[in-house]
């Protein structure tokens, strides 16, 4: 698939390449941006911006890096840049209050989910663990693919995933015990 797109780019058929690229990468880029931004509208903006940047930069793509690696690098930079530009809604000194406010903000942006309890627990995971969980479970990706998307070593991704699952399992068990 990527090879066909690279051929189109090399042939200067950038519009055709973009037409093939969008369905292939839309969910991946949205997931990657969402993992970083935790905001659907912002993630969609970033995904659009990344496609535009890729389309504009196709002339300079020399094929030295894999197409996916190149696109993911652009996407990570765009998402991090959007995150930096985003004004902080809360500037609370009390960490508990601040964490609660962040959780409330995240819950308000959660996708329509029939498992809000698990969603809230995912939101409390450390940043990298949360990103790995999002990308891993979004489309049943391999740890290798998640590693490429996040620009991390595969073993680091495996460690984040293992810790996140263990943490979620303990938290779920505790909340179910408390509910019972």
């Amino acid at each position: 698939m990527d090879e066909d797109i690279v051929d189109l780019i090399r042939a200067g058929r950038h519009d055709d390449a973009l037409a093939r690229l969008v369905p292939a990468y839309r969910r991946r880029l949205f997931g990657l941006a969402y993992g970083i931004l935790r905001d659907r509208a912002a993630a969609e903006d970033v995904a659009q911006e990344v496609f535009v940047k890729v389309w504009q930069a196709m002339g300079s793509y020399d094929g030295r890096a894999r197409l996916s690696t190149w696109i993911y690098a652009i996407a990570r930079n765009a998402a991090i840049s959007a995150l930096r530009k985003r004004p902080r809604a809360t500037s609370l000194s009390d960490p508990d209050v601040s964490a609660e406010a962040e959780l409330a903000e995240a819950s308000s942006q959660a996708p329509e989910s029939d498992d809000p309890q698990l969603w809230r627990l995912v939101e409390t995971l450390p940043e990298k663990q949360r990103q790995v969980v999002t990308l891993y479970y979004q489309e049943d990706r391999s740890t290798e693919e998640v590693a490429e998307m996040l620009g991390l070593p595969v073993n680091t991704v495996k460690t984040h995933l293992h810790r996140a699952r263990a943490r979620l399992a303990v938290a779920l068990a505790a909340s179910e015990e408390w509910a019972a």
């Binding site: 519009d15 973009l18 969008v22 369905p23 839309r26 969910r27 949205f30 997931g31 969402y34 659907r40 993630a43 969609e44 995904a47 659009q48 496609f51 535009v52 389309w55 996708p111 329509e112 989910s113 029939d114 498992d115 698990l118 969603w119 995912v122 969980v133 999002t134 479970y137 979004q138 049943d140 699952r165 979620l168 399992a169 779920l172 068990a173």
Partner: peptide, 30 residues
């Protein structure tokens, strides 16, 4: 418990995608 957690996580993230019309909005931008 882990298997159940995996199923719940998969279901939780299954709908994570851009809004419908993403391609049209991008085409208009381009």
């Amino acid at each position: 418990a882990m298997r159940s957690l995996d199923i719940r996580l998969r279901r939780l993230h299954a709908g994570l995608d851009a809004r419908p019309g993403f391609e049209d909005r991008l085409a208009a931008r381009v």
